[in-house]
Amino acid sequence: MLRTKGEAILLRSKPSGENDLMVTLLHGTRGKVLLLARHALKSRKRFLGSLELFNHLEVEFTERAGVFFGILESSAVIDAFPLFRKDSVAFGQAAYACELVETATRAGEPCRDILDWLLDFLVTLNRIGPGTTWSRVAELKLLDHIGLAPGLDRCSVCGGELASRARQAYDVARGGVLCDVCSAGGTNHVSLGTLKTLSVIRKSDLSLCGRIRFSGKAAQEAKNFLGDFLRYHMNLDYPLKSKIFLEKLNPRFG
């Protein structure tokens, strides 16, 4: 039996039976873990209030070889994010970041840097508030952390300079934007302005990212561009539920 302690973020929770809760946590060394929190819906002492969505927790859990889920022994709140209880857009954008991370991570694989990034994202979103760029920030920064971010500044095949024209060719399978030579026959294009804004987001701290704005047309273009990369590299053939939620709430925030 493996006993683990440490920091985690609660990505998802679902009632299991009448008294229990099945939770998905992101843990630095154990990656994405599925745990049963026994009597979580009834217990006054062990978990009360701590197992809320996206809370940053100090947890202790056990796992047995060959068993699909572990047992959550204890949890205590390190950070909670009050804005997500008040603002449906911020809640949706936090959910989108967490759902992207849930999709990108695996059970048993250490992901300390992703945990730190996600925590920084939630803290910053809670502090600054919702905005039209957060979904793109989450997509691009996460792709960056897992080594799948698109090349934005130079040709992704030969490393050469891009021609200075308004629209640049790109190919998701070849990792990003392409120069004139490498893009022969390519059909997907993105404007230089959108690429520059994405490049600024990629290089900036999260607190600055929350203040960056796309123009109306560039916002849709950035959504399509990063969506192509997510579909191809993360096998996201379906829209995440939190993305559907945001689109239904207000497409500008999706």
């Binding site: 449906s88 759902e99 539920k241 939190s242 939620f245 945001l246 239904k248 709430l249």
Partner: peptide, 12 residues
């Protein structure tokens, strides 16, 4: 209740 992880929006 509103639930982004289950795509439950105000319209639902």
């Amino acid at each position: 209740a509103l639930s982004p992880l289950n795509a439950v929006s105000p319209a639902d």
